[in-house]
Amino acid sequence: MTDINITIEDIKIGGSANDNSQSEGKVAKIVLFKGQLDETNVDEKAKLIYALLEQNPKNLHLLMNFEGLEYMNSKAIGYLTDWYSKISEGSGKMVIAMAHPNILDILEVVGLTQLIKCLPTVDEAKLELLDTSGITNSNQGGDNSSLIAA
């Protein structure tokens, strides 16, 4: 099996000590990926995220930290799309942070950067999770800047 390590942590996306995500009814989590998602591991690892969705069917705010993700295949993209749909249906939000150029490139070719916000830093991704307007100031993908960076 190809190496992939996925860890899930709670995050605070509010600005002050009293302003935490739990008090607003939001559940905010950061999912860190390290390694490669391919045919040998993606079905098994996807169960972790589905369990998280099951535990938090409403208002789940998920930050996918792709800093350590080296590769993802089309099935992994399929799962990502499904998680995004389920989270959106539950009035939650999902964003991607720190994706490598090759990951952004593949997300872009399947059209996902048009749907899921991809931000260059975790801090910007946290801000995006807080933002309810739907307006993004610096989408990492979805335009030609990602190709230039690649």
């Binding site: 089309s74 993209i77 749909s85 070719v109 399947v110």
Partner: peptide
């Protein structure tokens, strides 16, 4: 098909391989 087609599979050949 659009990106949110509800399917886990089916992007490899038509979207990735074909486009590139």
């Amino acid at each position: 098909q659009n990106a949110l087609n509800g399917l886990i599979r089916g992007r490899g050949l038509p979207k990735i391989v074909s486009e590139w």
